[in-house]
Amino acid sequence: MSEFFTVSVLVATLAGGIRLATPFLLAALGETLGQRSGVLNLGVEGVMLIGAFAAYYTALETGSTVAGIAVAIGIGAVMGLIYAFLTVVMHAEQGISGIGIFLFGLGFTDLLFQKQVGTPLPIPGVGKAPIPILSDIPHLGEIFFDHNPLVYLAFLLVPIMWFVVNKTTFGLNVRAIGQTPEAADTLGVSVNLTRTFTIVIANCFAGLAGAALALEVGIFQQNLTAGQGFIAIALVYFGAWRMPWVMSGALLFGVVSSTVLQWKTLGIVSGPSSSLLAMAPAILTILVLVLVSRRVSAPAALTRPFDRAG
């Protein structure tokens, strides 16, 4: 255990936690926006997989990670339009259609990977972009300012998304249609158009999250996300639909995962015990939900489709 409490290992663990948090933070930010407008998207995992494969395959073929990221976001938007059609237009049950999207993404990416790629060739990653000056601060620089650009982007989006939701007219509309769509409708807010918009943004975030994961690992494989999309959804509840709290949850998950990994690498815990430790984030989430569920309430119109009467 003592070898864990050396400065360099602790620094590496915290930096790793921030890095690991990035994909599900991105996905969770998008999901938070979607849920604030009253739409639950359980398909995040599937869209993340599709985004991850799109980014991987594009980067593999073109050699450009930027192109990979762009394609992943674009495919995310397409998936968003599909999901918006399903839930906003067709009023499909949101929990179930999300599972459909998840299964589709899981199978489809596996299929494409086996058929189009096969040999799991690595792609060039995004590469670290240390922030000048700040990254030179001892320890703190390594923890916070020596990451790849997607990590900065994800954390930069937290205040941006907070601002969008809380300080803009669009955010006001989003919050209104998530609580009382009928009232918002009377005030002239187009409920379905706004929801379509939030869904598309949320799915772009999920696609980007997948890209962040694939580019971080530099590889794709069947079920690469391994449940991260579902963790992202949990984080939204965990953070009680507030961007800063969602970020805190993501960081907590990231640091816990990173710690388990470090302990494993340093031989502090055996393989079997690390499986037990890996249960921690899930149990933690349940406990937090038990504590907060009664106190904070979900957007009142969550999962409820809107249809103007008459």
């Binding site: 290992v9 590496a12 799991p120 690992v217 590889i219 391994a226 990994l261 690498t265 340093l266 499986s275």
Partner: peptide, 24 residues
């Protein structure tokens, strides 16, 4: 430093383990 990740298939975990090695 040897790290058995307890999986024959988890590529992402293998990547993380390698990153941890490099970090160390």
């Amino acid at each position: 430093n040897v790290n058995y990740i307890e999986s024959f298939s988890d590529v992402a975990l293998a990547a993380e383990a390698a990153t941890a090695h490099v970090g160390n």
